[in-house]
C-alpha cells in the first residue's frame, strides 16, 4: 500500500516535470499511422523511396513523442519537427492514418510546444481558495 502510493506520487512528480500528454499523444499518433500501414515490405520495395517515406514519417513521430517525454529540455525542437512530420503523413501514409493519427500528432505537438515548466498553480483558483494570503505574497 505504502509502496504503491509512493510510486504514484513519484509518477505524478515525474509527469509534472515534462509535457506528458503532448509526448504521449504524438507517440500514439505515430503508432496509429504505422498500424494503418502494415503493408508488406516486399510491396513497399517496389514503390521505392516514396514508399519508404511512408514508414519513415510515422516512425519519426513515435521517436519524437518519446524524446519529448524523456528529454523535455529540447521540447521546442521536437514539437516543431513533430508537427511538420505529422502534417507530412497526410501525403505519405494513408492520409495520416485516415486523419486520426495526424490529429493526435498535431494536438500532441501543440501541447508540447505550449508547455512551460515550473508554473504557479492557476491564479484564479488559488485566489478563490485562500483569499488574501496569496494576494499579499504576490
Amino acid at each position: 500500500m505504502s509502496s504503491r502510493t509512493g510510486f504514484r506520487s513519484a509518477f505524478r512528480r515525474w509527469r509534472a516535470d515534462r509535457p506528458f500528454w503532448g509526448g504521449v499523444l504524438l507517440a500514439l499518433g505515430g503508432a496509429e499511422v504505422l498500424l494503418t500501414m502494415k503493408a508488406s515490405v516486399k510491396v513497399m520495395l517496389h514503390a521505392g523511396m516514396q514508399g519508404l517515406a511512408g514508414y519513415l514519417l510515422p516512425t519519426l513521430m513515435v521517436l519524437l513523442g518519446l524524446l519529448i517525454l524523456f528529454n523535455p529540455a529540447q521540447r521546442l525542437f521536437y514539437s516543431i519537427t513533430g508537427v511538420l512530420v505529422a502534417l507530412g503523413t497526410w501525403l505519405t501514409s494513408n492520409l495520416g492514418g485516415f486523419f486520426v493519427g495526424l490529429l493526435l500528432g498535431v494536438v500532441g505537438s501543440c501541447l508540447a510546444f505550449g508547455w512551460l515548466p515550473d508554473q504557479e498553480p492557476r491564479v484564479r483558483r488559488r485566489l478563490r481558495r485562500d483569499g488574501g494570503v496569496a494576494a499579499t505574497e504576490v
Binding site: 500528454w21 501543440c110 501541447l111 505550449g114 512551460l116 498553480p121
Partner: peptide, 22 residues
C-alpha cells in the same frame, strides 16, 4: 502554500503552433 508548482500548458503559447498547423 497550496499545491506544488508544476509544468502546465499555456493556452496562448499552444495556439501559436495550433493555428498555423490547422
Amino acid at each position: 502554500d497550496g499545491p506544488a508548482r508544476r509544468g502546465r500548458v499555456r493556452a496562448r503559447r499552444a495556439a501559436v503552433m495550433a493555428v498555423p498547423a490547422t
